[in-house]
């Protein structure tokens, strides 16, 4: 049994959360700084898509 298989499944939520928090945080900071209100949404969407890409790299790619 490969030890990483189960670990990847458990870390999905962690990846999604950290992607959203980091890039959403960057967007929030930009909003706060530039007095706008659309960077937050953009940052969150960017974080989600980057996280899902990362999860695909970790899980989807290994089992070809």
């Amino acid at each position: 049994m490969k030890p990483n298989d189960d670990g990847a499944a458990w870390s999905i939520v962690g990846y999604l959360l950290s992607g959203m928090l980091f890039w959403g945080g960057v967007g929030w900071a930009l909003d706060h700084w530039l007095k706008t209100h659309y960077f937050l949404l953009g940052g969150l969407l960017l974080g989600v898509s980057a996280s899902i890409y990362l999860i695909w790299l970790r899980i989807g790619r290994n089992s070809k």
């Binding site: 298989d5 990847a8 999905i12 939520v13 999604l16 996280s51 999860i55 899980i59 989807g60 089992s63």
Partner: peptide
């Protein structure tokens, strides 16, 4: 397995 976990990731993304 990867398909299930990717689907789970997409659904979970909406919750988070």
């Amino acid at each position: 397995q990867p398909i299930a976990f990717l689907g789970f990731a997409l659904a979970e993304a909406l919750a988070l």
